[in-house]
């Protein structure tokens, strides 16, 4: 079986600084994979390179189609939703408008209304606040909104950049539970970048560890979680 997302020899640059030094990995359809690493290891850059938001070389294929040379918006339209670091909430718009924006590139307008309702089922707190300006939401609520907005695309693949960042542990647990549910029930392939390795490894079935722009370890999330050496040297807990 060929992988859904295939990344080969990915190198990325900020100006003259090289941030990724030949990354290769693959995601199977339906999998939930986590990308772990310390600050500055290149996790965010990897996600940004997939969506062509940073200058990069190498081959990225999504469901057999090469992504090289496509604009960010075209990549998104192929069914790759990206929840960026900092959530990218449209703070001056209402919660509902944010959700509508998530579906703005879809052509099946009839289903959009139903999908918004489904998001309200996943995240009841968003329903309570659907006419509020998104900027007035708490951090956790904004993260839920960002995930919901990404799901409104009906993505085949969802990229999440540190969804736990700045959230209380209880809220992180809740969010991760929902992510697992989305992965199982909606058959959305998920790649989640995390610093909270322990939690991410509980959730994921595959894991990659990167350090200074290179992959240093990959395998089953369970194996990595139980490997003492890995835990001590890379994950720090």
């Amino acid at each position: 079986m060929t992988a859904m997302l295939n990344v080969k020899d990915l190198r990325a640059y900020y100006g003259q600084v090289q941030a990724l030094h030949g990354l290769s990995f693959a995601l199977d359809e339906g999998s939930l994979t986590t990308l772990l690493g310390a600050n500055g290891a290149g996790k965010t850059t990897t996600l940004r390179a997939i969506c062509n938001m940073v200058r990069s070389t190498g081959a990225i294929e999504f469901e057999g189609k090469p992504l090289t040379g496509r604009s960010t918006e075209n990549i998104v339209r192929l069914g790759i939703a990206h929840v960026p670091q900092g959530r990218g909430t449209f703070t001056t718009m209402t919660v509902e408008e944010n959700l509508q924006l998530g579906a703005i590139s879809r052509n099946d307008r009839k289903n959009v209304v139903a999908d918004i309702e489904r998001m309200y089922e996943h995240f009841p707190v968003l329903k309570e606040r659907h006419t509020q300006q998104a900027g007035t939401l708490s951090g956790g609520e904004q993260q839920m909104l960002a995930v919901a907005r990404a799901l409104m695309l009906r993505p085949r693949l969802m990229l999440l950049d540190e969804p736990s960042f700045g959230l209380a542990p209880l809220i992180v647990r809740e969010l991760f539970k929902i992510l697992g549910k989305i992965n199982r029930e909606d058959k959305v392939t998920i790649l989640v970048v995390e610093q909270n390795a322990q939690l991410a490894l509980e959730l994921a079935d595959q894991a990659y560890v990167i350090e200074t722009g290179r992959i240093v370890m990959s395998g089953d999330a369970k194996d990595i979680a139980t490997n003492e050496d890995v835990r001590k040297s890379y994950l720090g807990y």
């Binding site: 938001m53 918006e73 998104v76 939703a81 990218g88 449209f90 718009m93 590139s105």
Partner: peptide, 11 residues
């Protein structure tokens, strides 16, 4: 409002 986020929803 937010060009980068807008691109990420396919605009």
């Amino acid at each position: 409002a937010l060009p980068e986020s807008a691109r990420l929803v396919g605009i």
